[in-house]
């Protein structure tokens, strides 16, 4: 659905986005992670043809962007850097205007289209107030509604739950999952690791303009092949497991053995008490931090060696 090759955006000497090869497949919920200023938004804008790339290629739904924008973008819904609307008009009027904008728009069924997305995102259909009176959460819902207007095959969402309360976040998450089950591919850019962790099937991590990780969620956050043990008899346990011990921190031991049942058996049969035992799992935060720092070390190393990258 989204494929980029060597996508690069240079501002003067700064590479805001540096040779990014994205690969988002049909049916994915793709989490696009990165710190503020890592180039996420610039990448999203290039995908949508708002910012023109300095180098590299973009394919959206199999067609080159921004060349095929007029045929591709009608099948894409987007929320970029927060929602926007004309403040003096109501949400409904804003959606009708947006529905009427652009080529090949039909008047027929407009009212129904607008009513259905308003209901979908949980806004009050009877609300006639101008958007200027809307709360941040309501604006966010309105932005999502406008992204859904054309029943897109691909949704590109930048921080979609920004400003929502926990209840609202839950609702939007359910809505996105439901859309995804119905066949919509979702590209979700976020700096909220927990959001991505709960929603996404694939993850890409951007660090200072470079894509440092791109993999299935399951592969990233799966078991590490180690076992974590908590025991009140830590001293004896350390002695017993010395050969396989990775680290010991107070009562918490990490053992280089993926079979936690076997580890448990060894401890218990030696008469040691075990409070907790289970396979070690990485969470996304660790993955991201590890990937970023690795990348940084690699770059620093290059600089140390006096080699200047082209």
């Amino acid at each position: 659905m989204i494929r980029t090759q060597g996508l690069t955006k240079r501002y003067g000497a700064v590479r805001a986005v540096d040779s990014v090869d994205l690969d988002v497949r049909e049916g994915d919920v793709f989490g696009f992670l990165g710190a503020n200023g890592s180039g996420k938004t610039t990448t999203v804008r290039m995908l949508l043809g708002l910012v023109l790339a300095t180098g590299g290629e973009i394919e959206l739904l199999g067609d080159p962007m921004p060349k095929a924008a007029m045929t591709v973008l009608p099948q894409v819904g987007a929320l970029v850097e927060g929602p926007a609307a004309y403040p003096h008009l109501s949400g409904r009027a804003n959606l009708s205007l947006l529905d009427a904008a652009g080529r090949g728009t039909r008047t027929r069924g407009r009212r129904a289209r607008v009513a259905s997305v308003i209901e979908q995102v949980g806004l009050d259909p009877g609300d006639r107030r101008g958007v200027r009176t809307y709360s941040l959460g309501m604006r966010q819902r309105l932005g999502l509604a406008s992204a859904l207007l054309r029943r897109p095959r691909l949704l590109i969402l930048d921080e979609p739950t920004n400003g929502l309360d926990p209840q609202g976040i839950h609702e939007i998450r359910e809505l996105l999952l439901e859309l995804n089950r119905a066949g919509t591919t979702i590209f979700l850019s976020s700096h909220l690791l927990s959001e991505v962790e709960q929603l996404c099937t694939r993850v890409g991590v951007l660090d200072r303009g470079r894509l440092v990780v791109q993999d299935d969620m399951a592969a990233l956050s799966g078991p590490t092949g180690r076992t974590v043990v908590r025991t009140p008899d830590a001293a004896q346990a350390v002695r017993l497991l010395t050969a396989q011990l990775v680290s010991a921190d107070g009562d918490r031991l990490v053992v280089d053995d993926g079979d936690s049942a076997a580890v448990n058996h060894r401890l218990v049969s030696s008469g040691l008490r075990v409070r907790e035992v289970g396979p070690e799992r990485r969470d996304l935060e660790q993955v991201v931090l590890a990937a970023s720092s690795q990348e940084r070390r690699a770059q620093d190393h290059v600089v140390d060696a006096g080699v200047v990258r082209s």
């Binding site: 043809g49 708002l50 924008a69 007029m70 850097e81 926007a84 004309y86 403040p87 947006l98 652009g102």
Partner: peptide, 17 residues
């Protein structure tokens, strides 16, 4: 300023238009 430009352009509305 209102941010609506980007939403018009990804609608898409051609820039010339």
């Amino acid at each position: 300023q209102t941010g609506t430009l980007r939403y018009l352009l990804v609608r898409p509305v051609g820039r010339t238009r």
